[in-house]
Amino acid sequence: MKTIIKYVLLCLLAVKTVTAQNSTKSINLSNAAATPYEIELTQNKTTHILFPSSIEYVDLGSSEIIANKVEATSNVLRLKSVKEDIKPTNFTAITNDGKYYSFNVIYNEQPIQLSYDLTKFEKQNSKKQSEVLFKDLGSISPSLVDLFMKAIIKKNKKELNIKSKTYGVEAWLKSIYSQDGKLYFHISINNKSNLPYEVDNVSFKIKDRRTTKRTTIQEVSLKPIRNYRDFQTINSQSKQDNIFMLDQFTLSDKQILLIEINEKNGVRNQVLKVKSSDILNIKQIIELKL
């Protein structure tokens, strides 16, 4: 009798297992699809797309179309077909702010439109783009980084007395914030002179505070991961603010961080000196009202 009961239980268990396996269904990803834009290309005319942010990546679905970033810009893509009457294809693009764009391409000898401004389109149509994560940002999304930077700019609080002044141009390090293993440096440039001030580059270097002629100068360059904007020409009697994000670091009492702002074809260079105490006493971004 016990043998029969065991046999029946085994049969029921086998039937249940088979039923469970048969009831397993594949997941339909149609609801997760990234809705593509539709675009027409031709061979004898160039199509341009203006993206809201710098282009980081482009992948073409066919060798029958070509695409390049416009050299003088970072957010304009030009495209055309390599021959007439190409087959329908697609391409994707990822921008610096983490947005993912998908395009369906069809051939048209006379495209209705040759220039597309996605910045204008997204504002008018509230199209929500898919977002990707970048390795250098870790688990922080690019849109959240942008939110942090905007909050710092909006707060515009001068928490540090670190400044440099040369020939009518002032540079201030207003504040340093931290969040999720990243440091945010708020730098402001005020051009009080009568000549425009064009920034060539901004560098971050850790150096020894005291060195002698016999001592080898120790220098470590730090590369910003992101910045709020590319410094442009600062007109006379005007100012501009920017945020630079770097990986978190600390300084010893014998070290100093130099932030060097160099003028293009000029001598009005600025140097901001940051001590270890300035780094250790920074605040977290969560203290700001986002």
Rank of each mutant, 00 (worst) to 15 (best):
R210W: 06
K205A: 06
T215G: 14
E198Y: 06
I217G: 06
S188K: 11
K207P: 00
D208P: 02
E198C: 01
R209P: 01
S193A: 10
D200M: 08
T215M: 14
D208G: 10
H186D: 07
N201S: 13
T216S: 08
T216Y: 07
T212K: 09
T216M: 10
S193D: 13
K205F: 05
L195S: 08
T212F: 05
N201I: 08
N194F: 07
T215V: 12
T212R: 12
T211Y: 12
K205M: 10
K213N: 15
T212G: 03
D208F: 04
R214Y: 13
K213R: 11
H186T: 00
K207F: 08
T212L: 08
V199Q: 03
N190Q: 11
H186C: 00
V202T: 10
N191G: 03
T216W: 03
L195P: 03
V202A: 07
N201F: 13
K213H: 12
V199A: 02
N191D: 03
Y197F: 12
I206D: 06
N191V: 04
S193W: 05
S203V: 02
I206A: 03
R210V: 13
T211I: 15
I187M: 05
Y197W: 02
R214Q: 15
F204L: 04
R210Q: 12
I187D: 02
T211L: 07
K192L: 09
T211P: 01
I206F: 07
N191R: 05
N201W: 10
R210K: 13
K207G: 01
S193I: 09
L195C: 00
S203E: 11
T212N: 15
S193Q: 04
I206C: 04
T215H: 13
V199L: 00
I206H: 04
S193E: 09
N194C: 03
H186N: 11
I189Q: 02
P196G: 03
I189M: 04
P196V: 11
D208V: 07
P196R: 07
V199H: 01
S188R: 14
I217Q: 15
V202N: 03
I206V: 14
N194S: 13
F204K: 07
I206P: 05
N191F: 06
N190D: 10
N194H: 04
Y197T: 05
V199E: 00
R209E: 09
